[in-house]
Amino acid sequence: MKSFFKKATVMALTLAVGMSLVAGCGSDKKDDKAASTKVEGKISASGSTALLPLLKVGQEEFYKKHDKVTINLSGGGSFTGQKQVAAGSVDIGNSDVALGADFKDKGLVETKLVGIPFVFIANKDVPVDNLSAQQYVDILTGKIKNWKEVGGKDQQITLVHRAKSSGSRATIADVVLKGAEFTDAAVIQDSNGAVRSAIATTPGAIGYVDAAYVDSSVKALSYDGVKYSIAAVVDGKYPVYTFGRMFTKGEPKGAVKAFIDYVTSAEFQNVNAEKQGFVPITKMKK
């Protein structure tokens, strides 16, 4: 672990040198052609694993335009991304949760990358299709324990969701629970896929996953009468979403700025975001 951080520091130093070389081309709006001749250097980014697949595509596309830039993408989780960018060991910290209280005064600048919608799913034997916001709160906090209390059959509700360190869980706590606490009486799985398969095989199970993970093995539930769709998120009717964010220490500059500008551009977002189950940031009201 330690040597990893040493490496990261060395990398950051190399990068600082690289960045100072390209610092000259920091003018605000320039077209891609001008940029392709000037942008070079190394970019390191870590954090959210949910955003990683999208950024990997972004990296490949970006390389086609700027072959003198090297981008080093790694995971580690949202909180790790925030911590590392605050410490200066990476250039970009990716996160699907808002900045933690510890990092508020570290001069981090947030750029929103995509909208990340979440969908509540249940086992297919559950006859309920829709729950109200309050019913979700009562189920997640453990107040409602049986499906018959929300119009289903007499069957125990089994909550299947993510660990306390998960960004998805933090989002649901924030957006749906609004401060109330999750019950500890739940089955915990450590990824979206595992949550989905546990729900698919456990009668009476309910949980939430990133919208991209909803498939025919489970039943997608509506939230307050609104069925999830990208349009519903864009219109502001479906509130269960968060933003994928990229944090930089200070305003992004040089190659980092070029990369962030590229992955948030309509050109990239319209093609790739929806394909990966995200809502293009260009369509969202920020």
Binding site: M1, G77, F79, S165, D190
Partner: peptide, 14 residues
């Protein structure tokens, strides 16, 4: 440990 370590920052109390 295995469920939580992936998203827990190194060096935090957690």
């Amino acid at each position: 440990i295995v469920v939580e370590m992936g998203n827990t920052p190194f060096g935090s109390t957690w």
